[in-house]
Computed example of a mutant assay.
Amino acid sequence: MAHTENSKTALVTGANRGIGFEIARQLAAQGFHVLAGVRSREKAVTASEDFEKVGVTVTPVVLNLADSGRLSAALSELELTSPPIDVLVNNAAILIDGPGGFSSSFFDMTDDIFERTWETNVLGAAVTMRALIPGMLTRGYGRVVNMSSLAGQLANMGSGYPAYRVSKAALNALTRVVAAEAGASGVDVKVNACSPGWVRTAMGGGAAPRSPEEGAETAIWLAMLDSAGPNGGFFQDKEQQPW
């Protein structure tokens, strides 16, 4: 869908497949100019074709969240070359299978798996927020959606996939800190986190009960909140969850 002068611009990271693809597709269908963050030029080409197949036009941008050192420069360049970014959806994340991965014990977790998970799931989101929210605050409008998980919920924390759990708990903490700063600014910038539930994706697997469309629903809602909407919350199915 062509965007108009008045349409908003959204950046969705990890947008070439799964929930991120569906969030980008739905925002584009709503009239947003969507920047679809992907990890490589090859994925950018494939993503363009995949979005065209489902009837929307997006602009792929190469952002490797696993390389936080270069990510800041890439985002600075993006701000110079794209319309102002009104909506940021931090969707890109990894869950590494292996020691410290999906089913193993914390005591089997390797430093490498912990570091790789932390860099993408936490540092990547921190860098994007630090780069893009100042512009939102200056312009007086912004929506940030951090794609978290009930796996990072301290209220019901248990064992299993320790690196992923810790990273999502940290992302929730980042959400609270940044939302408090945004809220203190007095302008209409909102920062929230959400859990998509267990979704049929490469990460969630084929046995998951939810479709990517269902997994994207709460993120779309948070991306399009009006000025009376929540700030600094954690949601699943549009309902607030305990941290």
Rank of each mutant, 00 (worst) to 15 (best):
R143Q: 13
G160H: 09
N6F: 12
S148T: 04
S227Y: 04
G55F: 00
L123P: 06
Q240I: 11
F102N: 10
V187Q: 07
Y141I: 05
V189Q: 00
S227F: 02
L88D: 01
Q153I: 04
P209W: 05
A125T: 13
D108T: 15
P134T: 00
R17F: 11
N146R: 11
G233W: 05
A163W: 05
L171D: 04
A170H: 09
S227L: 02
A125M: 10
L63K: 00
F102Y: 15
A173Y: 05
E115K: 13
P212Y: 07
E115V: 14
G135C: 09
W198Q: 03
T218D: 08
D111L: 13
G37N: 08
V122R: 06
V122A: 12
G69H: 12
V45H: 12
D188Y: 05
G98T: 14
V166C: 13
A93I: 15
S227H: 03
L65Q: 15
L65T: 13
G152R: 00
I220E: 10
Y141C: 05
T110N: 13
L35S: 03
Y164S: 14
A74I: 07
P99E: 11
R210S: 01
R139C: 07
G31C: 00
G160Q: 15
S72W: 08
A10S: 02
S149R: 04
L71K: 04
F235D: 07
S82V: 11
L174R: 09
L11A: 10
E52K: 14
L132T: 10
S72V: 10
T110I: 08
L65C: 14
A193G: 11
S82Y: 00
N192G: 00
E5P: 10
F51Y: 06
E213P: 03
R39S: 07
Y161E: 13
I113Y: 12
R139V: 09
F234N: 03
G98E: 12
A28N: 02
D67S: 03
R39G: 06
G204V: 02
A216D: 03
R139M: 05
L11E: 01
A47C: 06
A155H: 12
T120G: 13
G197R: 00
T46E: 15
P230E: 06
A92E: 09
N156D: 15
S40E: 14
V177N: 12
L35Y: 02
Q241M: 15
R130P: 00
Y164H: 12
E22R: 04
H3Q: 11
V191R: 02
P209G: 05
D188V: 01
E217T: 15
R25G: 02
S149F: 13
F234V: 06
N64K: 11
E181Q: 08
I85C: 07
G55V: 02
A170L: 11
V144I: 14
E42P: 01
S76L: 10
D111W: 07
A36F: 08
L174V: 12
V199R: 04
L150F: 10
A92D: 05
R17K: 15
G215L: 01
T81V: 12
E119I: 09
R176M: 07
T128G: 01
I133M: 05
P212H: 09
N192L: 06
E119M: 08
G101F: 06
